[in-house]
């Protein structure tokens, strides 16, 4: 059994505390960190403003799957938070990591030290999480101020956003380990766009014909949206555990792929 574990998770794929060093490195390198953070915070706010204010009056009230009727802005806000957590995680875990892997060769230098491949993986994902957490808190504060949520459970949505961020950072990073040229980024867009549009962010799944609804439930972002919406509406039931489980599972599989692939690429 322990032999099997050692084979599945060789030392290079087990992180150490040194992962924090990569986090420090990223903090040091991002001189324009404030700009990145402002941009990351503004994105969902823009969406909320455009969709909530611009389209809200045309849509009117929306009825959720749980039977609650609420304003369109209050409905769409948690969805946008989830979508933005996904976008942020993908943007930050694909372009920069691709460049570090293939152009800057940052990781080659890192691995010449006692750092392990898994330290890189965990360090990069922690880094993405740190920023995702800041954006989510800002957005939730805005929802409170504008009265889009009144639930005492709403801060839990920040944790939910972190989970969504984790899942997609891991997935994005895993995808990057397979990419050869920057044209492969088209493929990422090809996956992200349908997720963004068809995950119950903008309207309840009930808009679709019944036979399509199970297909939409494949989307990991759908599970993120449902999770966050439960928190901002203060409506819980046992399906939440399922939603969270899907995200955790997907993120873990991503982590596993990254460590295997990176060991193959960086330590050849």
């Amino acid at each position: 059994m322990s032999l099997l574990l050692a084979r599945l998770f060789p030392p290079q794929s087990r992180p150490t505390r040194r992962a924090g060093r990569l986090l420090q490195r990223n903090l040091l390198v991002y001189k324009h960190i404030w700009m990145v953070i402002i941009a990351g915070f503004c994105e969902p706010v823009f969406y909320l403003f455009a969709v909530g204010v611009g389209l809200g009056s045309f849509v009117g009230d929306v009825t959720t799957a749980g039977g609650q009727t609420l304003s369109y802005a209050a409905f769409v806000a948690p969805g946008l938070l989830a979508a933005s957590a996904m976008n942020g995680a993908i943007v930050e875990s694909t372009f920069p990591i691709f460049f570090k892997l293939h152009y800057n060769r940052t990781y080659d230098a890192v691995l010449a030290t006692p750092m392990r491949v898994a330290d890189i993986t965990v360090g990069e994902i922690l880094w993405a999480q740190l920023r995702a957490g800041i954006y989510a808190c800002g957005f939730l504060a805005l929802m409170y101020v504008t009265g889009l949520t009144t639930s005492p459970w709403a801060p839990g949505a920040a944790l939910g956003a972190l989970l969504v961020g984790f899942t997609f950072s891991a997935a994005g990073f895993a995808a990057v380990t397979f990419m050869r040229t920057w044209h492969d980024f088209d493929m990422i867009q090809l996956v992200i766009l349908p997720l963004f549009l068809f995950s119950g962010t903008f309207y309840p799944l009930s808009v679709y014909p019944p036979f399509l609804q199970p297909i939409m439930q494949i989307s990991p972002l759908y599970h993120g949206t449902e999770l966050l919406r439960a928190f901002t509406l203060g409506q819980f039931d046992w399906t939440l555990a399922g939603h969270a489980g899907v995200l955790v599972l997907m993120g873990t599989v991503g982590l596993f792929i990254i460590s295997r692939r990176l060991v193959g690429t960086l330590l050849k």
């Binding site: 324009h32 700009m35 990145v36 941009a39 994105e43 969406y47």
Partner: peptide, 19 residues
């Protein structure tokens, strides 16, 4: 810097699209 490019994309391109 590349980070300036990425920030610009999120900061201005998305509002341009939405509004």
């Amino acid at each position: 810097e590349d980070s300036t490019m990425i920030a610009m994309f999120r900061f201005s391109i998305i509002p341009l699209f939405l509004f």
